[in-house]
């Protein structure tokens, strides 16, 4: 069973108030107020001095055991919201692998599920590990990376919905670890909301919460547990209002959702799950045996709704 053995997160120190985004993004005062007061998004992390490679390296550097375990790493899977983030053939993923001494691993990027790509990366890495033979140094491991720059307008904010923070994460997975075991994964895609799919943004807004509720329910069913058995929900940091309304829709107490990072980091692309996991661990919110759910929505062109249930 796929398990998370270690997690590291990197967020740039530099904080940018949402008001500072108004001029460069052409936002009106009303739009800024919407972000701050309605959605609870007050600031994001951005550092123009850090490259994408820098972000990935900072996260990997936080995995203190990686250097001693690196020979067991057979797969490096980079889950990324934006499909193309460098001109071809610039390849930060393989730069990072070479620097970390992971050239022996099979490394690739998994994308086009927007911000839900990280959960698919965990699922894929776990499946690859399950049939991988032991290495001479022990059972095989996978390194799942996330990390993105707010390099273009589409990567800076989602109109009327969210603002993006730069950041990154690194996560070591095993096929048989016992720390955070993956019990279930559910994913549902709505490609009709792509630019060629013919559906309207308004219809997407109406479909959003029911679709997320459905995929959460499916993940819980697969895990064989009910909503009330969840100790915690680690959300995507899209905004506060979405989660308040979703909680009403599915009957989940709002205090069961770790929303603290929405306010001061915003939406860290695919890294939200790991940012929130780190916070949960730091605050002692997870005890052995606790079940928790991770939710993600990829809402670029086309939409992906995904949820995972873990046991800590």
């Amino acid at each position: 069973m796929t398990a998370i053995d270690a997690v590291s997160v990197f967020l740039p120190q530099r904080r940018v108030p949402v008001e500072s985004l108004a001029v460069p993004l052409g936002l009106s005062d009303m739009q800024v107020r919407l972000f701050r007061r309605f959605h609870g998004l007050t600031e994001v992390r951005r550092d123009p001095g850090l490259s994408l490679t820098d972000l990935l390296m900072r996260a990997a550097a936080g995995l203190t055991t990686l250097s001693t375990l690196r020979r067991r790493v057979r797969f490096v899977v980079y889950g990324r919201a934006f499909p193309v983030v460098t001109p071809y053939p610039v390849n930060p993923l393989h730069e990072v692998c070479r620097t970390l001494g992971l050239g022996h691993a099979l490394a690739f990027t998994l994308t086009q599920q927007s911000c839900a790509s990280a959960l698919a990366a965990i699922d894929v890495a776990g499946r690859l590990l399950a049939s991988e033979p032991d290495t001479p140094d022990g059972p095989p491991l996978a390194l799942v990376l996330t990390g993105e720059k707010a390099f273009t307008r589409d990567a800076q904010f989602i109109p009327e919905t969210s603002v993006f923070s730069e950041g990154s994460s690194a996560c070591l997975l095993s096929a048989g670890g016992g720390r955070d075991r993956l019990l279930a994964y559910a994913c549902h895609q709505r490609g009709e909301f792509d630019v060629a799919g013919g559906e309207s943004p308004a219809r997407f807004q109406r479909a959003y919460r029911p679709a997320l509720a459905e995929v959460i329910g499916r993940a819980l069913d697969r895990a064989g547990i009910g909503l009330s058995e969840l100790r915690l929900v680690l959300p995507h940091n899209v905004n506060l209002m979405t989660w308040k309304r979703l909680c009403r829709l599915i009957g989940l107490p709002l205090d069961r959702v770790l929303l603290d990072n929405v306010t001061d980091t915003g939406h860290v692309f695919c890294a939200d799950a790991f940012v929130n996991y780190r916070t949960a661990r730091e605050r002692g919110l997870l005890r052995p045996g606790d079940r928790y759910l991770v939710a993600a929505v990829g809402a670029g062109d086309g939409a992906t709704f995904a949820a995972m249930v873990f046991e800590h």
């Binding site: 790509s117 273009t152 895609q189 062109d301």
Partner: peptide
């Protein structure tokens, strides 16, 4: 910037789980 794989899921019988692989 397009999530092309998500769109392809929509036009493929079965609405499959879909994603893209690159940088390899």
């Amino acid at each position: 910037g397009r999530a092309t794989a998500a769109y392809l899921s929509h036009v493929c019988p079965g609405t499959p789980m879909s994603f893209a692989l690159c940088d390899q």
